[in-house]
Design a protein around this nucleic acid. Structure first.
Lengths: 310, 310
DNA sequence: ACCCATCATGCACCGAATGTGCACGGTTAT
DNA sequence: ATAACCGTGCACATTCGGTGCATGATGGGT
């Protein structure tokens, strides 16, 4: 409904380069360039300036982008209200999510939607949280299940999004089966302060979560190895290379020589899993139904846990 | 920026038939039909129902149309603000107006804009007030100078428009030169109650104004003849067929045997001339400049009048 | 009751808008 | 200096969207 060129401009405002905008929106770089040029022509505004080998938003461009938040939200609100009033649903629904954890919530959701609305075209995109927000802006997806972080990519009251907490997923410790603490039921982070830690690369989604967990208890861990996938990390731990943190929702499968321990003590790290939609679309019947399914999934996960860990 | 199909739907909501919508928007009926069908498909909503030999908005359709007022206004606001922030103006500007009176304000405006902004493409459309509002909705014009009436086509606080009073244009009486009262400087409507009146056809723009003038003083005039153009009405009066009301701004030219008299007494009928724009666009630099020009034109007209008639 | 006016819509056709892929020029980093 | 990167222009293809005409359906006029 809103001119797709404006959406493209908004995506550009997020990622800053034409190439990245093209990748996110699904267009070619030439198309993005042409769209932005056409947008400027039709509005009679100069929105971009050359900046080195790239382009940059002008003040007018930034103004337009930030002001368009309200416009987009207004449209989403209107569409949602009309959908509800007319008791109708759209034909396409894009879901985004990250990692195995989100998959545990997204997969049931997609399956449920597929059964209740057989003629609804559901598309699931796996992407990290930051990219999920990008995809929401680019209107490639309509709902994202992501891990909230206290980084700059996550702002509670962003005018572009509305968010809803689904559950807090505690982090466990995984240690080699032959580790002295392997027979324990739970440990504190302080007890593991001296261990060689395995985590993701700095700047990654979970690295900030990792450091946040330790700064909370005032310990500085020694990072020995880095792994991208959970599976790799688990394998490293099984090989006795060190210890690591693993979200409760991430399955250990049949990992050899790896033990999962609860963390006790004052530092009880967890990651917050939230659902995010474009602002205004929260009232849409499909979003409402999806949120309900997600919440019941989350509830089911929570009730399966011991009383004191909810 | 807003999908033109939604604009088309809004125009349809005003005039009710595909054909009229096509005429107003400048499309062919087939195009309007296709657009509305495509709009329903892309939104997944049923907006129209067959109704006899025509089509009618569904409840969802009406909801969407009324809700879209805020969306359109939001966009106009954003564009206006960005224009102002970036100190830039659009390339096209459509003006609408009615009758000779509005032309006296519109022509100077168009001329002034043409000189101050040489590369601005100014288009003037003559149309009656109701059609001017339609053209505003259809985005064919951006500013209209119309005669405010207490009919259903004019609502003070319509969510789609913003209006601004320019001036009140008093109505004069025109009578034949050989009429007993022709030597008077002013008359009251009561004095002319028994005369045969000449007016426009019932339902026309000025007929309601005409009747309103007489109901204000409690007189029911005898309507003897009907004329569409001022010129015709003046000629009728000159031929001694009756008397009529003529707005001050309508020139009498060199009409033979016709005298224009001021109206005094408690009923001092006048028509209110207002400028109208789409809601939100009032802050646009071009609109601001136009309103300034219109107001100074109005001021010039007012100062040319005797003190007691302003 | 018949006929015609009116209205919306489907279809064939056409043009313009908009996409892609590739090559090029300018800019920064190594 | 060279290579990598980024944006953009150009040729080309495709698709979207509009027109004009014919058709079907409905309701008012006589």
């Amino acid at each position: 409904m809103i001119d797709p060129r404006l959406i493209t401009l908004r995506v550009f405002a997020r990622c800053g380069t034409v190439g990245a905008t093209a990748e996110l929106t699904g267009y070619s770089p030439s198309a993005v360039s042409a769209q932005l040029r056409e947008l400027q022509r039709m509005l009679g505004m100069q929105l971009l300036t050359k900046d080195g080998r790239g382009v940059r938003l002008t003040a007018t461009g930034r103004f337009l982008v930030s002001g368009s938040d309200a416009l987009i939200a207004e449209w989403e609100r209107l569409r949602a209200a009309a959908m509800e009033a007319g008791d109708q649903v759209q034909s396409r629904f894009g879901l985004g999510g990250f990692s195995t954890a989100a998959a545990q919530l997204l997969a049931p959701l997609a399956a449920a939607l597929r059964s209740t609305r057989p003629l609804l075209e559901v598309q699931v995109l796996e992407a990290n949280p930051a990219r999920c927000f990008d995809l929401l802006v680019a209107e490639r997806i309509d709902l994202a299940v992501i891990v909230a972080m206290q980084s700059d990519t996550y702002v509670e009251d962003d005018p572009r999004f509305e968010q809803m907490v689904l559950l807090d997923d505690p982090l466990d410790v995984i240690i080699p089966g032959d580790h002295p603490l392997a027979s324990r039921e739970s440990v504190t982070l302080e007890e593991l302060a001296g261990e060689p830690w395995i985590t993701e690369a700095a700047g990654s989604t979970y690295h900030s979560l990792f450091t946040a967990a330790f700064t909370a208890v005032g310990v500085t861990p020694r990072i020995a190895h880095e792994a991208v996938e959970w599976e790799t990390q688990i394998a490293f731990v099984g090989a006795g290379l060190g210890v690591g943190l693993l979200p409760r929702l991430a399955p250990l499968h049949s990992a050899e020589n790896v033990v999962r321990l609860r963390i006790t003590g004052k530092g009880r790290p967890s990651r917050r899993i939230v659902a995010a939609v474009r602002r205004g679309s929260i009232a849409s019947p499909l979003v409402q139904e999806s949120l309900g399914i997600l919440q019941s999934s989350a509830q089911r996960i929570l009730t399966a846990r011991p009383e004191d860990e909810r």
